[in-house]
Design a protein around this nucleic acid. Structure first.
Lengths: 348, 348
DNA sequence: CTGAAAGCGCTTACAG
DNA sequence: CTGAAAGCGCTTACAG
């Protein structure tokens, strides 16, 4: 609609397009007088650069795309239980993007579909984002990193696991978090501590397990193979693995779950087995999404700094142009052990 | 880099750019043979149109912007209680957008700031979205509609209230919802029913109140002025207004709250006053976000079809090009009364 | 039914 | 320190 363009501004200020462009982009070599004149014209006309045009002319797109795993994301939204990783990402990343005139686009990606790469290519080709935020499990998918690298797209990977050090990596110390949880239980007097692992295709799963092992060993506590139950992050998986743990002849007096859902499922199973939490069984969960603070009792949990991680990822993508992050150290953000009512000294 | 453009496709297929463009956009007048040849070339090269270029050349931007009220939105994310309206919008709108190659951008808008219009102009000018989804309270802000109309931007308004019939309007029947809630209580035997109003600057607040009034009158039940408490949607406001209601000489045996937060606050106050819910006091809330199903007892609530509304809004914006929605009827989506444990016959 | 030209609003080298 | 030209990748009228 007869919108204001750089041309109008140039006329109003009596300068060339070129100069206006330089002022907009804080380019060098503009006298203060001219700059002021241009700024005044911009304000007067209410000029705002057209992003599509800027992008076309070869500048930044001012767009960041955050890819999220489709099914778990939709599933959680549908369930309406408030387990909202995406909301936390928005909380961290959106205001950060806004501050520098960027926009954040959430995109859903199918876990392992054949068309995964096709979809990524389509998004990158059509949107030309200045950077892409990858979340698990895609953040650890080497073939995706390959693809994005080939396309020359900057990457920030949240919780990417170890091994591949390409792109900006933003993490919390998963291993230490699990160790802290374990030590908390040990300090309470627990010796038989069970562990429910997360989905095998998420790198954090192995890291959390390693932290548990390390802390148990450091305390010279035995680790029985039957105490470690391999599962997935889901409630259903939690039901199954917790059940297996609770029906053991010598059952653990405490359980560390690799997700909130699993922990909630463990709580459910404990109740079913007539075990009082935390009296007969202590439970610690991972992530600390809303439902765990509403449960009875509310759960002790490792809080993942999702918002802070997303903010950092955005910052790195916005400010890190030209920097080669490859091989540089990961950005480690602090987690927190939130102690609530599901942990106590063992009863027996 | 060195990305595939329409030019490459044209060469590969041995046709003009023009023809490729026609095929991409499902334009008329292309022979099947040519179309197939072009499609084959597109597939072979993995061509995806550059959105910035399309936009520049005067086509759609394939971008939808959803404006949300900044502070309440951030506040809820920060609180981490899972009261997530935005997540429900994403659930409804994102897959719908994706289906037609659109992208949804969430943007935050300050409630009443001077720079509100400036911000909207900036977003519209820089992004050139094909349409804008407005949510309360902005969806009922006449000056915003004016502004967007002037700019020629298509608008879909969620819960816009009555009066201004411009743009696509997607609503639930707020008045009927409140009436249904009221009738549910009446059917249970309640005669003294209190009502906590929502924020005055949200049109739904007045509508909900009107529904309550209508249902009470239809049942020939008295409406005492002191039973209607004007407040805001927040928990704090709920504490205050519920307190006022519960300390009345002749206190209501049931309360309808205009938001989940208020209802939770009422529950809190009831507990403080030694009243058992639902034995001594029934409570119904509005919206049905996650926390109300976690409370003790879980609350009976009117469920707002937020995801469905966002989906409809997207559909209207995507498919409704060229249609003038002004003055056409609003799109009414069904709400639901979810009966849980906070409502029962009055005790006395 | 198909194609050559102009132009969208910017930025990037390149001159001066 | 400032400006005239070219070009980004498309689509839109306009020819043929």
């Amino acid at each position: 609609m007869g919108s204001v363009t750089i041309k109008h501004v140039a006329e109003e200020a009596g300068v060339s397009l070129q100069t206006v462009s330089r002022v907009i982009n804080n380019g060098p070599n503009v006298t203060d007088a001219l700059r002021d004149r241009v700024r005044a014209a911009i304000d007067k006309l209410g000029y705002v650069p057209n992003m599509a045009a800027r992008r076309m002319a070869g500048s930044k797109s001012y767009l960041l795309v955050a890819f999220n795993d489709r099914e778990p994301t939709l599933e959680k939204w549908r369930a309406g239980r408030g387990s909202d990783w995406v909301a936390q990402m928005l909380l961290g990343a959106m205001p950060r993007c806004e501050r520098d005139g960027y926009h954040l686009l959430i995109e859903l990606l199918d876990g392992h579909s054949d068309r995964l790469h096709q979809r990524i290519d389509a998004v990158v080709s059509s949107l030309r984002p200045d950077g892409v935020i990858l979340t698990p499990p895609h953040s650890q998918d080497t073939s995706i990193i390959d693809q994005l690298e080939r396309r020359g797209v900057a990457i920030a990977r949240m919780s990417p696991g170890s091994g591949d050090e390409r792109g900006f990596r933003v993490v919390m110390d998963e291993q230490e978090a699990a160790a802290v949880a374990t030590r908390h239980l040990i300090a309470l007097g627990h010796r038989r501590i069970g562990f429910l692992t997360g989905s095998a295709d998420y790198a954090v799963s192995a890291e959390r397990l390693a932290g548990y092992r390390a802390a148990m060993e450091a305390a010279s506590l035995p680790i029985r193979a039957e105490w470690i139950r391999e599962g997935e992050f889901s409630f259903e998986s939690g039901l199954e693995t917790a059940e297996a743990l609770l029906t053991l002849a010598e059952r653990p007096s405490a359980i560390i779950a690799s997700s909130d859902e699993q922990a909630l499922a463990a709580l459910h199973r404990a109740r079913g087995a007539g075990l009082a939490v935390p009296r007969d069984l202590s439970i610690i969960s991972f992530d600390d999404t809303p439902p765990v603070s509403f449960s009875l009792p509310p759960l002790t949990a490792i809080r993942q700094p999702t918002a802070a991680m997303a903010e950092r990822a955005s910052t790195l993508l916005i400010e890190g142009r030209g920097i080669d992050p490859n091989g540089s150290p990961a950005h480690v953000l602090p987690f927190e052990l939130v102690i609530r009512g599901s942990t106590a000294p063992p009863h027996d």
